[in-house]
Design a binder for these strands. Structure first.
Length: 154
DNA sequence: GCCAACGTTGGC
DNA sequence: GCCAACGTTGGC
């Protein structure tokens, strides 16, 4: 049974179009610096899991496409790059603190705006809609996945 | 730019 | 281990 996830990205940094342009239409989901989100990638994600690619911190936040997990978790290279804003001086290659999976584009969709998601009773259970939610990776139930993908095709 | 929410840090 | 201060997220 595949699992489903919603993953937030700031489109100024990595957008759905960036993923579409990437070689093999796949990219590492680098830059996660929150333990709960890291643990989801490290411990629970499996190749083939479904991903709702969500644009955050932008003019029109919402789901911008569908992707899938296409690697196991491995050390996030940016934590060792002194020039990266994700550099972590406390992490070492021997004991890397931060991990990422790779994700692959399934398809770019219409933008499903956050405001529309909030209007849908069938999406009201989604973690990303909870008040005060800041977690950048959240699990999505099979029911929520079906409801969202149906809306994306509408 | 504002600010609510919440995770992390560090002194004790 | 507590918890105040601080920093970050992210919608608006």
């Amino acid at each position: 049974m595949p699992q489903y996830w919603l993953m937030k990205s700031e489109p100024d940094e990595v957008s759905i179009d960036d993923l579409a342009r990437a070689q093999g239409k796949r990219l590492p989901w680098f830059g996660v610096r929150n333990y709960q989100a890291r643990n989801y990638m490290r411990d629970q994600m499996r190749i083939g899991d479904g991903v709702l690619f969500y644009h955050s911190s932008c003019a029109e936040p919402g789901v911008a496409g569908i992707a899938s997990v296409c690697s196991a978790a491995y050390a996030d290279a940016t934590q060792f790059d002194r020039k990266s804003k994700y550099f972590d001086p406390k992490s070492t290659p021997e004991a890397p603190r931060w991990m990422n999976v790779d994700v692959k584009l399934v398809k770019k969709t219409r933008l499903l705006p956050l405001t529309e998601m909030r209007d849908r009773p069938d999406l009201s259970s989604m973690w990303v809609l909870r008040k005060g939610n800041r977690l950048s990776i959240t699990p999505v139930t099979a029911d929520e996945w079906r409801a969202v993908t149906r809306l994306l095709e509408a």
